[in-house]
Design a protein around this nucleic acid. Structure first.
Lengths: 150, 150
DNA sequence: TATCAAAACGCGACCAGCACGCAACAGCGT
DNA sequence: ACGCTGTTGCGTGCTGGTCGCGTTTTGATA
């Protein structure tokens, strides 16, 4: 198991931040909820237990948690940003056709990262924005001769 | 020289679209303007010659031009999308610190694209979203021992 | 346990970037 | 020049997110 809510709360205190109900619930939602929640989804999860929490509170908490290095956000495409614990940071491959999201194997970026570093001095951070493309299934559909219209 | 406005206008006619003042001006701005214009910047360029063109007209034209394969848009980071001619499509590396944008060498994505294809069946489209990272200069600054505060 | 400064909250207003509905207008085939 | 229909200008609306302000809460200290 990577991180419990209590450990994350301890990180908050270490960082000088206070521990509030909303904040704890955001962390709980991140630990126990679905894999790539948006701020909106986190808000829903938080409100399930504390209905009066305001959207801006969730946004501000995510910002603060990110400042402390507890969570990171990723853009998976055109929609809203998604959040996860910093301990679970990883690259993403997103299908432009169906929206399917998959975790990128860690070494997939190695060659490109090394090439960019050596040739351009550019240090890749391939986690912040997903790499777009077309997934197996959608590529198969696109390549199929005819979807047999009738 | 890649494309003249007249060639692009011909593409419009071939696609069944009409050629209007606003549309021609958008194309002109794309051909002759700065490298990675946003919709807003294109609007300004268009309005320099036709002050009454409305923002939504530019957005709709860009959408239509994209449908016809004349232009493509790219997301360089958190800001608005940027547009360029489809003939000039290329990958981008964007510095998360200073925002510097550079064109990615064509072969930089080869290894990753092949790896993704062979191992996951995933066909990379690395042009739609930029790859983020830290540029040479900002990496140097970050690595410097002390910026000599006084 | 009471006190209190500062942090965080709830709330609403606001912002950027963009999409949409509609009536008027203009391109272009005839 | 005519008329069909795509396009425009305009306002309005939506999503995703930020900000300022007055109130509440946290948690160190007494």
């Amino acid at each position: 198991m990577s991180s419990t809510v209590d450990e994350l709360v301890a990180q908050l205190r270490d960082g000088g931040s206070r521990v509030t109900t909303a904040r704890r619930l955001v962390l709980t939602a991140l630990v126990k909820g679905a894999p790539h929640p948006t701020a909106e989804e986190l808000l829903v999860a938080v409100r399930a237990l504390a209905p009066d929490v305001h959207a801006s509170t969730v946004y501000r908490n995510l910002e603060e948690l990110e400042r402390l290095g507890v969570v990171v956000h990723t853009h998976l495409g055109h929609g809203p940003a998604t959040y996860h614990l910093a301990t679970e940071a990883h690259g993403h491959l997103v299908c432009e056709v169906c929206g399917a999201t998959m975790e990128a194997p860690e070494d997939l970026f190695h060659a490109m990262a090394e090439g960019a570093k050596r040739r351009l001095g550019f240090e890749l951070r391939p986690y912040h924005f997903a790499v777009l493309g077309v997934c197996v299934d959608c590529a198969a559909i696109a390549a199929a001769p005819e979807p047999s219209v009738g």
